[in-house]
Amino acid sequence: MNIFRLAGDMTHLASVLVLLLKIHTIKSCAGVSLKTQELYAIVFATRYLDIFTSFYSIYNTLMKLIFLGSSFSIVWYMRYHKTVRRTYDREQDTFRHWFLVLPCLLLALLIHEKFTFLEVLWTFSLYLEAVAILPQLVLLQRTRNIDNLTGQYVFLLGGYRGFYILNWIYRYLTEPHFVHWITWIAGLVQTLLYADFFYYYFQSWKNNKKLQLPA
């Protein structure tokens, strides 16, 4: 564990908690993409299957349980909670997320390190995580006016990705043989997807204005 990795995990945790807290306290999920949240639930469910097969640390297991629990709670709130579900922007959140799942699954079947059930699903989760934010970014573009919490959620997620890249650079430099092309490329693609959003986020921050994305 290095400082970049810890900072990455903490911003990731903060992003999910910000979102869950927002939904729980103000009983609204306006501006939040259910498609993205469902994709994250799939990402965590397929990546963390190794909870049952291997143990790394208490930290590792605890964080996995938190991410699983929070992502499925958010999906539950948005789908079934009687007040929250009414605030969901159903008409705007039209991204066909299954068109992301299938190519990722095919890619994982083709490009992986080992052809085992757990390894292919783990690789699939990396590919899917890279693109899972897309429905959320599309929804942000459509609604344009973004409340602070949704903006912070995406900002924190982007921060998490940035720190993970630093973590990989650090590990590459300090740990012998730390080379993971699949993880790195998927992670880099994911980080790049945030670049556009970050540009407008900082613009609005600099000008002290409410965040607005161009249509």
Binding site: D9, S54, Y56, S57, N60, M63, N167, R171, H177, V179
Partner: peptide
């Protein structure tokens, strides 16, 4: 190298 050192990441 077959040790899964990225599997301890989240």
């Amino acid at each position: 190298k077959l040790v899964d050192d990225t599997k301890d990441e989240l």
